[in-house]
Simulated assay, not measured.
Amino acid sequence: MPSTPDDGEDVRVDGRDARWAAHRSSRRAELVRAARRAVHHRGPDLSMDDLAAEIGTSKSIIYRYFTDKSGLQGAVGDAVIDELRAALGEVSERVTRPRDRIAAMVDVYLGIVESSASVYAFVTQPGAAATAGALRGFVAEIEDIVAEALLPVLRHGGARSATDQALAALWAAGVVGHVRSVAERWIAARAGAAAPEPQGAADRGTEDEIAAMDRAALGARITDWLWTGAAGVARRARTTTTRPDDAIGDHT
Score class of each variant (00 low, 15 high):
A140P: 05
Q199D: 09
A195S: 14
L167K: 11
A202T: 00
S116K: 10
I112H: 06
Q125W: 07
P152T: 00
V146H: 02
G174N: 14
Y120Q: 15
A104C: 04
R190L: 03
T163P: 02
Y109S: 04
I142E: 08
G157S: 08
V108Y: 03
R215K: 15
V95W: 08
S161A: 02
S181I: 08
A217L: 14
G205S: 06
A130Y: 05
A211T: 15
L151S: 02
A212W: 07
T206A: 12
A202I: 02
S92H: 14
V108P: 03
A162M: 08
L218S: 08
G174H: 09
G174P: 12
E141N: 05
R101I: 01
V108W: 07
E197F: 03
E209R: 15
G205H: 04
V153F: 07
G219Y: 10
G127N: 07
S92M: 13
A149G: 06
V175H: 02
L167V: 15
A189S: 09
T206W: 12
D107Q: 12
A191N: 14
A195E: 15
L154S: 03
G205K: 05
R136M: 06
E209T: 14
Y120A: 10
A168S: 05
A212Q: 12
V113R: 09
A172C: 07
A189H: 06
S118T: 11
A117Y: 04
D203T: 06
R185E: 12
M213S: 08
A162I: 15
G158N: 12
R160Y: 01
